[in-house]
Design a protein around this nucleic acid. Structure first.
Lengths: 223, 223
DNA sequence: AATGACACGTGAGGC
DNA sequence: TGCCTCACGTGTCAT
């Protein structure tokens, strides 16, 4: 089939002939050896093939490296486990909210968060206490010369859209285009910003700190 | 550069080695070769180690076989994708029950429990270019006087976006606005059409038949 | 006896 | 140059 195989078989036969010189003429061993060679080749080929298939189902592949593919797959599976846990917690939260009373779900969430404030001003933190923004994914990359693309994915809770809009409007970014969409339990926001390529990390950190500050106003981070 | 020459040189060297059997071992071989040998050993050890780590995070390991581990990991990732989609559908369903403003006239799709825990979609043999469109949800509702809203959700596979666009471009619909988005293992397309209210069912059937026609002629020739 | 899976040492080729 | 990844053929062990 291939020129490669042609040469390979050619030299294989040459070697086999050389080995048969003076030694015991066992033709069974030659056929068995070549059979084993091709079998091993098939096995290796199949393994790399399945590895490519694994690379196909894992979205974030850092390097084409063989071990890195497996490592990224492990990270991805653990990430999916986290998402599943978060989502199931959300389901239980929503089911508990199906009672008639609306704003009294803090009785449950009080356990997860320590009671930090006695009578602090809670004019704007009333929203963040109810349901904080859960960032599932945040990607900041540059496109072209002076364009930065931001993709933020959050779990869809009450007022998540409003809060995300508040976050980005408070950052004083040069927004070219912004798009926010709610879809199947998640909220995805995509932004095109005007900034230099070197500012990607800065923008990412600014977004993260702003979200963290909105979630926990007492944190040392501030805008 | 050519694979032919590569193989030829390889086997030539093999022959030379065979001819040199019994000669004195080179001293240069011990320095460079032993370094490479241990390096390769480390690399292989690391690879199998990551493979064991992969096996640790995958619950359903059929065989301890090396390739089977990767294959089971692939199946598990796809299974997690399905679970994630189903759970997010449940979340959106629960949230829609709490919402007052959303009124979709077609709430008929009560199949909130799709029994697809067992999926037989096998894409192992190389890359099967078939990958039919799997419709997860299709809603067609009217909004206003002569506006029809179409919302189609499919599972994200290879070329699903392209095929969906092909489907809708072949239908000769009066498209006011179209939006397609890929997100978390799913592809969602939203369209605003100009049509009468009575044509909702017609549009829905047209879309369904078009998708079915796209799936059918390309028979699944996997494996 | 035979098949399959694995680790090994080794050369080619890419940075 | 040296390091790293990969595929190759082979011996070995288990089924």
């Amino acid at each position: 089939m291939d020129d490669v195989d042609v040469y390979k078989d050619y030299w294989e036969n040459m070697i086999l002939q050389t080995e048969q010189l003076g030694s015991s003429p066992d033709g069974a061993q030659s056929s068995a050896a070549s059979k084993n060679i091709e079998s091993e080749r098939k096995r290796r080929q199949k393994l790399t093939e399945t590895l490519h298939a694994l690379r196909a189902v894992v979205p974030n592949i850092s390097k084409m490296d063989k071990a890195s593919i497996i490592k990224d797959a492990i990270d991805y599976i653990q990430e999916l486990h986290n998402q599943e846990r978060v989502i199931q917690a959300e389901i239980s939260e929503l089911e508990s909210k199906r009672s008639i009373f609306l704003d009294f779900d803090e009785e449950i969430s009080c356990n997860s968060k320590p009671k930090r404030s006695r009578f602090e001003q809670t004019c704007d933190s009333a929203e963040s206490r109810s349901s904080p923004i859960e960032v599932l994914e945040l990607r900041v990359s540059h496109m072209g010369e002076k364009t930065i693309v931001v993709s933020l994915t959050c779990s869809k809770r009450t007022d998540t859209m409003v809060k995300i809009c508040e976050v980005f409007e408070s950052l004083n970014l040069k927004i070219i285009t912004a798009n926010i969409i709610a879809f199947s339990g998640s909220v995805l926001k995509t932004l095109f910003l005007e900034a230099n390529e070197e500012e990607t990390d800065v923008v990412k950190i600014k977004i993260q700190t702003a979200i963290a500050a909105l979630n926990d106003p007492d944190s040392p981070m501030s805008k």
